[in-house]
Simulated assay, not measured.
Amino acid sequence: MNNPFTLQFEVQQDMLLREAVALCGISKRALTAIKFDGGKIFVNSIERNVRHRVVRGDIVTIVFPQEEASEGLIPQQGHLTIVYEDEALLVIDKPAYMSTIPSREHPDNSVANFVLGYFQAQGLASTVHIVTRLDRDTSGLLCIAKNRHIHHLMSAAQQQGDVHRQYEAIVYGQATNQSIIEPIGRKETSIIERQVRQDGQFAHTDVEVIKYGRLNDCIMSHIRLTLHTGRTHQIRVHMAYVGHPLVGDELYGGDKEIINRQALHCVSLTLRHPLTKEILSFSSELPEELASLL
Protein backbone atom coordinates (compact mmCIF):
# COMPACT_ATOMS: atom_id res chain seq x y z
CA MET A 1 0.00 0.00 0.00
CA ASN A 2 1.68 3.19 -1.13
CA ASN A 3 -1.11 5.52 -2.21
CA PRO A 4 -2.71 7.07 0.90
CA PHE A 5 -5.71 9.30 0.34
CA THR A 6 -4.68 12.98 0.22
CA LEU A 7 -6.84 16.09 0.42
CA GLN A 8 -5.59 19.57 -0.49
CA PHE A 9 -7.28 22.95 -0.22
CA GLU A 10 -6.53 26.68 -0.09
CA VAL A 11 -7.28 28.61 3.11
CA GLN A 12 -9.84 31.36 2.56
CA GLN A 13 -9.33 33.36 5.78
CA ASP A 14 -6.98 33.62 8.76
CA MET A 15 -7.74 31.03 11.44
CA LEU A 16 -6.32 28.10 13.38
CA LEU A 17 -5.43 25.07 11.30
CA ARG A 18 -7.89 23.05 13.39
CA GLU A 19 -10.70 25.37 12.30
CA ALA A 20 -9.66 25.24 8.64
CA VAL A 21 -9.66 21.45 8.70
CA ALA A 22 -13.09 21.37 10.33
CA LEU A 23 -14.51 23.55 7.54
CA CYS A 24 -13.63 20.74 5.11
CA GLY A 25 -16.02 18.46 6.95
CA ILE A 26 -13.32 16.36 8.59
CA SER A 27 -14.79 14.78 11.70
CA LYS A 28 -13.13 14.79 15.13
CA ARG A 29 -12.71 11.04 14.80
CA ALA A 30 -10.87 11.42 11.49
CA LEU A 31 -8.70 14.19 12.89
CA THR A 32 -7.74 11.96 15.83
CA ALA A 33 -6.83 9.18 13.40
CA ILE A 34 -4.69 11.58 11.38
CA LYS A 35 -2.90 12.67 14.54
CA PHE A 36 -2.27 9.26 16.11
CA ASP A 37 -2.47 6.65 13.33
CA GLY A 38 0.12 7.84 10.88
CA GLY A 39 -1.49 10.73 9.04
CA LYS A 40 0.07 14.12 8.46
CA ILE A 41 -1.00 17.72 7.86
CA PHE A 42 1.17 20.10 5.86
CA VAL A 43 0.87 23.85 5.38
CA ASN A 44 2.77 25.06 2.33
CA SER A 45 4.64 21.71 2.32
CA ILE A 46 5.73 22.06 5.98
CA GLU A 47 4.27 19.63 8.52
CA ARG A 48 2.24 21.46 11.17
CA ASN A 49 -0.01 20.60 14.12
CA VAL A 50 -3.61 21.77 14.42
CA ARG A 51 -2.68 24.68 16.71
CA HIS A 52 -0.74 26.34 13.89
CA ARG A 53 -2.28 29.57 12.61
CA VAL A 54 -2.92 29.69 8.88
CA VAL A 55 -3.57 32.74 6.72
CA ARG A 56 -5.54 33.34 3.55
CA GLY A 57 -3.83 31.71 0.57
CA ASP A 58 -2.01 28.99 2.53
CA ILE A 59 -2.17 25.53 0.92
CA VAL A 60 -3.12 22.79 3.34
CA THR A 61 -2.42 19.15 2.46
CA ILE A 62 -3.90 16.38 4.58
CA VAL A 63 -2.46 12.88 4.23
CA PHE A 64 -4.86 10.35 5.74
CA PRO A 65 -3.50 7.28 7.54
CA GLN A 66 -3.56 3.87 5.92
CA GLU A 67 -6.81 2.04 6.63
CA GLU A 68 -6.99 -1.55 7.77
CA ALA A 69 -9.72 -3.88 6.50
CA SER A 70 -11.79 -5.71 9.10
CA GLU A 71 -10.54 -9.18 9.99
CA GLY A 72 -13.43 -10.95 8.30
CA LEU A 73 -12.97 -9.21 4.94
CA ILE A 74 -10.70 -11.15 2.59
CA PRO A 75 -9.45 -9.48 -0.62
CA GLN A 76 -10.45 -11.43 -3.73
CA GLN A 77 -10.02 -10.94 -7.46
CA GLY A 78 -13.33 -10.90 -9.32
CA HIS A 79 -15.20 -9.05 -12.03
CA LEU A 80 -16.62 -5.60 -11.24
CA THR A 81 -18.65 -3.57 -13.72
CA ILE A 82 -17.28 -0.10 -12.94
CA VAL A 83 -19.54 2.74 -14.04
CA TYR A 84 -17.49 5.59 -12.51
CA GLU A 85 -14.28 6.00 -10.55
CA ASP A 86 -12.14 8.84 -9.23
CA GLU A 87 -9.93 9.40 -6.20
CA ALA A 88 -12.96 9.53 -3.86
CA LEU A 89 -15.76 7.36 -5.24
CA LEU A 90 -16.41 4.08 -7.01
CA VAL A 91 -19.78 3.37 -8.62
CA ILE A 92 -20.45 -0.17 -9.85
CA ASP A 93 -23.33 -2.00 -11.52
CA LYS A 94 -23.93 -4.99 -9.26
CA PRO A 95 -25.39 -8.20 -10.69
CA ALA A 96 -28.04 -10.18 -8.86
CA TYR A 97 -26.93 -13.07 -6.64
CA MET A 98 -23.88 -11.17 -5.38
CA SER A 99 -23.84 -9.98 -1.76
CA THR A 100 -22.75 -6.42 -1.03
CA ILE A 101 -20.81 -7.54 2.05
CA PRO A 102 -19.89 -11.05 3.31
CA SER A 103 -22.31 -12.89 5.56
CA ARG A 104 -22.38 -16.22 7.36
CA GLU A 105 -24.38 -17.74 4.50
CA HIS A 106 -22.21 -16.09 1.79
CA PRO A 107 -18.75 -15.48 3.31
CA ASP A 108 -16.92 -14.62 0.09
CA ASN A 109 -17.28 -13.44 -3.53
CA SER A 110 -19.12 -10.32 -2.35
CA VAL A 111 -18.78 -6.80 -3.73
CA ALA A 112 -16.68 -5.88 -0.69
CA ASN A 113 -14.30 -8.82 -1.26
CA PHE A 114 -13.77 -7.90 -4.90
CA VAL A 115 -13.45 -4.16 -4.25
CA LEU A 116 -10.83 -4.75 -1.53
CA GLY A 117 -8.88 -6.96 -3.95
CA TYR A 118 -9.20 -4.23 -6.58
CA PHE A 119 -7.95 -1.56 -4.16
CA GLN A 120 -4.99 -3.67 -3.09
CA ALA A 121 -4.03 -4.38 -6.70
CA GLN A 122 -3.92 -0.60 -7.23
CA GLY A 123 -1.89 -0.03 -4.08
CA LEU A 124 -4.63 2.01 -2.43
CA ALA A 125 -4.25 2.35 1.35
CA SER A 126 -7.98 1.99 1.93
CA THR A 127 -10.70 -0.43 2.93
CA VAL A 128 -14.26 -0.69 1.62
CA HIS A 129 -16.90 1.85 2.68
CA ILE A 130 -20.36 1.03 1.26
CA VAL A 131 -22.46 4.17 0.72
CA THR A 132 -25.59 2.69 -0.91
CA ARG A 133 -26.10 -0.99 -0.16
CA LEU A 134 -28.15 -3.46 -2.20
CA ASP A 135 -29.66 -6.78 -1.13
CA ARG A 136 -27.93 -9.86 -2.55
CA ASP A 137 -30.67 -10.56 -5.10
CA THR A 138 -31.19 -6.92 -6.08
CA SER A 139 -29.17 -5.68 -9.04
CA GLY A 140 -28.08 -2.23 -10.16
CA LEU A 141 -26.07 0.81 -9.17
CA LEU A 142 -24.10 0.84 -5.94
CA CYS A 143 -21.79 3.57 -4.56
CA ILE A 144 -18.61 2.99 -2.55
CA ALA A 145 -16.40 5.55 -0.82
CA LYS A 146 -12.65 5.08 -1.09
CA ASN A 147 -11.83 6.60 2.28
CA ARG A 148 -13.32 6.95 5.77
CA HIS A 149 -13.53 10.73 5.34
CA ILE A 150 -15.39 10.44 2.03
CA HIS A 151 -17.77 7.94 3.61
CA HIS A 152 -18.44 10.42 6.42
CA LEU A 153 -19.25 13.15 3.88
CA MET A 154 -21.49 10.85 1.83
CA SER A 155 -23.37 9.68 4.94
CA ALA A 156 -24.06 13.32 5.80
CA ALA A 157 -25.19 13.92 2.20
CA GLN A 158 -27.63 11.02 2.45
CA GLN A 159 -29.11 12.46 5.63
CA GLN A 160 -29.49 15.82 3.87
CA GLY A 161 -31.21 14.27 0.85
CA ASP A 162 -28.34 14.82 -1.59
CA VAL A 163 -28.16 11.16 -2.68
CA HIS A 164 -31.08 10.11 -4.90
CA ARG A 165 -31.84 6.54 -5.98
CA GLN A 166 -34.53 5.23 -8.28
CA TYR A 167 -35.46 1.59 -8.76
CA GLU A 168 -37.65 -0.32 -11.15
CA ALA A 169 -39.58 -3.38 -10.05
CA ILE A 170 -42.25 -5.79 -11.20
CA VAL A 171 -44.94 -6.41 -8.61
CA TYR A 172 -48.10 -8.48 -8.36
CA GLY A 173 -51.44 -6.78 -8.92
CA GLN A 174 -52.47 -3.39 -10.21
CA ALA A 175 -50.34 -0.93 -8.27
CA THR A 176 -51.13 2.78 -8.07
CA ASN A 177 -49.09 5.96 -7.92
CA GLN A 178 -48.62 6.70 -4.25
CA SER A 179 -46.27 7.87 -1.53
CA ILE A 180 -45.72 5.26 1.18
CA ILE A 181 -44.63 6.73 4.50
CA GLU A 182 -44.59 3.92 7.04
CA PRO A 183 -41.99 3.10 9.74
CA ILE A 184 -39.98 -0.11 9.33
CA GLY A 185 -38.46 -2.29 12.04
CA ARG A 186 -37.17 -5.81 12.57
CA LYS A 187 -39.77 -8.55 12.84
CA GLU A 188 -39.57 -10.01 16.34
CA THR A 189 -39.62 -13.62 15.14
CA SER A 190 -36.85 -13.20 12.56
CA ILE A 191 -33.27 -11.90 12.40
CA ILE A 192 -33.68 -11.16 8.68
CA GLU A 193 -37.24 -10.10 8.00
CA ARG A 194 -38.51 -6.54 8.47
CA GLN A 195 -42.05 -5.22 8.75
CA VAL A 196 -44.04 -2.02 9.02
CA ARG A 197 -44.36 -1.30 12.74
CA GLN A 198 -45.09 1.89 14.61
CA ASP A 199 -41.94 1.68 16.74
CA GLY A 200 -39.77 1.29 13.61
CA GLN A 201 -37.62 3.85 11.80
CA PHE A 202 -39.14 6.48 9.52
CA ALA A 203 -39.26 5.24 5.91
CA HIS A 204 -40.52 6.97 2.76
CA THR A 205 -40.97 5.42 -0.70
CA ASP A 206 -42.62 7.00 -3.75
CA VAL A 207 -44.28 4.69 -6.29
CA GLU A 208 -44.95 5.55 -9.95
CA VAL A 209 -46.62 3.08 -12.32
CA ILE A 210 -44.87 2.68 -15.68
CA LYS A 211 -47.30 0.15 -17.18
CA TYR A 212 -49.56 -2.78 -16.42
CA GLY A 213 -49.30 -6.26 -17.89
CA ARG A 214 -50.46 -9.82 -17.54
CA LEU A 215 -48.35 -12.95 -17.22
CA ASN A 216 -49.77 -16.45 -16.76
CA ASP A 217 -53.23 -14.90 -16.18
CA CYS A 218 -51.80 -12.77 -13.36
CA ILE A 219 -52.01 -8.97 -13.45
CA MET A 220 -48.65 -7.33 -12.74
CA SER A 221 -47.28 -3.82 -12.62
CA HIS A 222 -43.97 -2.41 -13.82
CA ILE A 223 -43.20 0.41 -11.39
CA ARG A 224 -40.56 3.02 -10.66
CA LEU A 225 -39.67 3.69 -7.02
CA THR A 226 -37.86 6.63 -5.46
CA LEU A 227 -36.23 6.12 -2.07
CA HIS A 228 -36.17 9.04 0.36
CA THR A 229 -34.72 6.89 3.15
CA GLY A 230 -32.59 3.77 3.09
CA ARG A 231 -34.03 1.21 5.50
CA THR A 232 -33.20 -2.48 5.17
CA HIS A 233 -35.57 -4.16 2.67
CA GLN A 234 -37.49 -0.86 2.42
CA ILE A 235 -38.99 -1.31 -1.04
CA ARG A 236 -39.80 -4.97 -0.47
CA VAL A 237 -41.50 -4.26 2.88
CA HIS A 238 -43.44 -1.22 1.68
CA MET A 239 -44.75 -2.90 -1.47
CA ALA A 240 -45.81 -6.01 0.45
CA TYR A 241 -47.52 -3.75 3.01
CA VAL A 242 -49.71 -2.11 0.32
CA GLY A 243 -50.60 -5.50 -1.15
CA HIS A 244 -48.21 -5.60 -4.11
CA PRO A 245 -45.21 -7.78 -3.21
CA LEU A 246 -42.33 -8.01 -5.65
CA VAL A 247 -42.35 -10.83 -8.16
CA GLY A 248 -39.86 -13.47 -7.02
CA ASP A 249 -39.69 -12.19 -3.42
CA GLU A 250 -40.56 -15.26 -1.33
CA LEU A 251 -39.64 -13.53 1.93
CA TYR A 252 -42.37 -10.91 1.54
CA GLY A 253 -45.23 -12.71 -0.18
CA GLY A 254 -44.03 -13.42 -3.71
CA ASP A 255 -42.90 -16.66 -5.28
CA LYS A 256 -40.11 -17.83 -7.59
CA GLU A 257 -42.28 -19.46 -10.24
CA ILE A 258 -41.40 -16.79 -12.83
CA ILE A 259 -38.00 -15.52 -11.69
CA ASN A 260 -35.55 -16.83 -9.11
CA ARG A 261 -35.02 -13.53 -7.28
CA GLN A 262 -36.92 -10.37 -6.41
CA ALA A 263 -37.63 -8.36 -9.56
CA LEU A 264 -35.86 -5.21 -8.37
CA HIS A 265 -33.10 -3.16 -10.01
CA CYS A 266 -31.49 0.18 -9.09
CA VAL A 267 -31.72 2.08 -12.39
CA SER A 268 -30.60 5.55 -11.35
CA LEU A 269 -28.18 7.12 -8.87
CA THR A 270 -27.65 10.86 -8.52
CA LEU A 271 -25.33 12.45 -5.99
CA ARG A 272 -23.34 15.57 -5.22
CA HIS A 273 -19.63 14.82 -5.35
CA PRO A 274 -18.25 15.20 -1.80
CA LEU A 275 -15.16 17.15 -2.95
CA THR A 276 -15.98 18.95 -6.19
CA LYS A 277 -19.69 19.48 -5.31
CA GLU A 278 -20.52 18.56 -8.92
CA ILE A 279 -23.83 16.74 -9.49
CA LEU A 280 -23.17 13.25 -10.88
CA SER A 281 -25.90 11.09 -12.42
CA PHE A 282 -25.63 7.45 -13.43
CA SER A 283 -28.09 5.03 -15.01
CA SER A 284 -28.32 1.29 -15.54
CA GLU A 285 -30.46 -0.74 -17.95
CA LEU A 286 -32.64 -3.55 -16.63
CA PRO A 287 -30.80 -6.90 -16.80
CA GLU A 288 -32.04 -9.48 -19.30
CA GLU A 289 -33.98 -11.61 -16.80
CA LEU A 290 -36.11 -8.58 -15.85
CA ALA A 291 -36.34 -7.01 -19.31
CA SER A 292 -37.61 -10.32 -20.71
CA LEU A 293 -40.56 -10.27 -18.28
CA LEU A 294 -41.69 -6.94 -19.71
Rank of each mutant, 00 (worst) to 15 (best):
E168W: 10
T132C: 02
V163P: 04
G243T: 11
R214S: 14
R133P: 01
N260P: 04
K256M: 09
L23N: 14
R236V: 10
D255F: 12
R133N: 08
Y172F: 14
S268E: 08
P65T: 00
S45A: 11
Q12V: 00
L73A: 00
L264M: 00
Q122C: 04
M239L: 14
E193G: 02
V171P: 09
Q160L: 15
I259S: 13
S126T: 07
Q12G: 00
I34C: 03
M15I: 06
L246E: 06
V50G: 04
M15F: 10
Y97G: 02
I144V: 15
I46S: 08
A175P: 08
R165F: 06
H228S: 06
C24H: 12
I259Q: 13
E87L: 04
P65K: 05
V267N: 11
H152R: 11
F282C: 00
H265S: 01
H233D: 03
L16F: 14
V242N: 08
R29K: 15
E19V: 01
L31G: 11
N147R: 12
G25W: 03
L286Q: 09
A30N: 10
I259G: 12
H228F: 11
A88Q: 06
T138F: 08
T138L: 03
Y97S: 09
T100L: 01
I59Q: 15
I62T: 12
D86G: 01
R51I: 03
G253L: 04
P4V: 00
V91Q: 03
F42D: 01
H222E: 05
V11N: 03
V171C: 15
P245Y: 10
V83L: 02
A157V: 06
S281A: 14
N177M: 02
P274I: 06
H152W: 13
D206N: 13
P102W: 11
R272K: 14
D37Y: 00
R133V: 03
S268P: 03
E10Q: 11
S281E: 13
T226L: 06
H152F: 14
R18Q: 09
R231K: 13
I150F: 12
N216P: 12
D255G: 07
T189R: 15
G248I: 05
I223F: 04
Y167A: 02
S103N: 06
S190Y: 07
Q201Y: 09
E208H: 15
V60Q: 05
I279E: 11
C218T: 13
Q120M: 07
E105K: 08
L89S: 02
Q234N: 05
T226H: 15
R186Q: 05
E188L: 10
Y97M: 08
F5Q: 02
Q201P: 05
K211P: 01
K187H: 13
S221M: 08
Q158P: 08
L153E: 11
L251T: 10
V115P: 05
D135E: 13
T226P: 13
Y84L: 00
L251V: 11
N177A: 04
S99L: 07
V60H: 06
H79A: 07
F119V: 01
S190G: 01
H151C: 06
D137M: 08
Q122M: 09
G39D: 10
V207I: 12
R214W: 15
V50D: 05
E208S: 15
E288P: 05
Y97I: 00
S27N: 02
Y212E: 07
R56D: 10
F202Y: 15
I144N: 09
E67V: 05
I259R: 15
H273M: 02
I258N: 08
